[in-house]
Design a protein around this nucleic acid. Structure first.
Length: 198
DNA sequence: CTTACGATTGCCT
DNA sequence: GGCAATCGTAAGG
């Protein structure tokens, strides 16, 4: 069963852990890379000061206000392409940021995109790494899941879940809307946060 | 038009 | 642990 994406971001984020996001190649390579989601964060648009959609729709964030089941991809620090899955009802801005995943298909392609020195478990470890491993950029924002290029596959088991504050934001920093699979080697390491006590 | 700033990462000491 | 890289966005004049 795929999670019902037309719900608020926190609920969707929880159910996305363990699901697989598969993306077919773009300009660089026709192959597919698929990752099993191991770390996600919820962003609840208008009600969330940390969300890009907090101040209303813009050209960049417009997709967050549209129907669920699309990708919202944005450029971070001029370098990194971060991937979100848009959720909640059409007209309500919400999305789940994919922070990390385990590559379960297309590891060779992901390795080529990320570079030969990156350990396999780190191929999609971190928001920028996920975007690079999947070959996504801002041009892919709005891509429809199930539309042929990208798809979401249901999880086969319900994984254990840990939750805590989100990472890298300056507002609403205490809201515990980061979810991850504890102990999974692909989960991104926190640099400026204390070690998680799971 | 101008300017400040990241939902980050990798390399430096 | 610290900091530079790098550029599209969004807010302000």
């Amino acid at each position: 069963m795929l999670p019902d994406l037309s719900r608020p971001a926190a609920a969707v984020a929880l159910d996305l852990l363990g699901c697989v996001l598969a993306v077919r190649g773009g300009s660089d390579d026709p192959g597919t890379v698929a990752i099993r989601l191991t770390e996600v964060e919820a962003y609840q648009g208008r009600d969330d000061p940390a969300s890009h959609a907090f101040r209303g729709p813009t050209r960049r964030t417009g997709v967050m206000f549209g129907p669920p089941g699309r990708l919202y991809v944005y450029l971070s620090y001029g370098i990194h392409h971060c991937v979100n899955i848009v959720c909640d009802m059409d007209g309500t801005a919400a999305a789940v940021l994919v922070r990390a995943g385990e590559v379960v298909e297309g590891a060779a392609l992901a390795q080529r995109r990320r570079g030969p020195r990156v350990p396999v478990r780190r191929l999609a470890s971190g928001p920028g790494c996920v975007g690079q491993a999947l070959g996504l950029s801002t041009a892919d924002s709005g891509t429809v899941l199930g539309g042929g290029r990208a798809e979401l596959r249901p999880r086969t088991q319900v994984p254990p879940v840990a939750r805590g504050p989100r990472v890298g934001i300056s507002r609403a920093t205490i809201v515990p809307w980061r979810f991850w699979i504890p102990g999974d080697p692909s989960v991104s390491v926190q640099r400026h946060a204390a070690p998680e006590t799971t």
